[in-house]
Amino acid sequence: MVEMVTKPYAAAFEKHALANPDVLCLSADLTSSCEIDGFRDRHPERFLSMGMAEQNMMSFAGGLGLAGFRPFIHTFGVFMYRRPYDQLMASIAYPRRKVRLMAFLPGITTPGGMTHQSIEDISVMRSIPNMTILETGDATEVESICEAADSIDGPVYCRVLRGSVPRLFDSPIKVGQMRELASGDDVLVVTAGICTEEAMRANSVLSKTGVSVRHLHLHTIKPFDAKALLDHIASVKHGVITLENHVTEGGIGSLVAEAMADAGVGKRLVRLGLKDTYAHGGSRAYLMRYYGLDAIALVRGIEDLMGQKFNVSEQDLDVARVEAVHSLAKAEGL
């Protein structure tokens, strides 16, 4: 069983902020929801409550950047870019302010429905010049996200997991690198965020059926090292499959497609994720099944890619973790 870590962000942020006096903590009325309530209570002089007013918060953070501070903005991913996109562009991205956008509840990790689910954030951020994008897929990555983000000379958008988070890795994020989790030679699976755990589950079952999977986990989405990816693609026979907690347009599926097209790679690519649709409210496990973001969806995608059936049933895969709506590890029901 994987180790589950409770609120890894809370301690990691506090430690990083205390070691870096120019780091400030900003919040837009989602302080407990972003696990910084303890920090607020213990270090009020380093905490700025900005109210539910995201547009102002973005430009304000740009101003803090001008004064030499490195603000960490905390809110849900959607509220980081949908309403305040213009402010994000003009006050943060263009002038390359060292603002760290800590985006909670990425993709369908919230039952809050369309208005709470940042399903196109990576696509938006990838198209912003000067933006760096990091995504956490386990507790160790959450624990290292602050240091990783704060090492960037410019703005950074981070998809952060909260609450009860599995520990899958034992080494911190090294910005610009990718994790090779399996080194097979039939198909290349590329995942990020919560989809990596799904892929690990699928791979453990598939390996018993004789399929040889190569698996890459991305924590750095932009800038992206296409050369390393292309080497991995060259070492598999059948092609590539991506699985993401995001729409299939503009996310890591697109990233891989662009790298392949740019290099003239003639292998097949299957992109799994939300297929040009909004999502709706529901539990994470239900939504991952409904929209085909889970282990079984990946198995079916690999079958499609290889043109074979592997006789893997849903029962063979570990049942996706079902989270209680009311877990002690989160502040509300979202």
Partner: peptide, 9 residues
């Protein structure tokens, strides 16, 4: 699978 969502859709 319900339409009676927590955050009214």
């Amino acid at each position: 699978g319900s339409s009676v969502e927590m955050i009214g859709a």
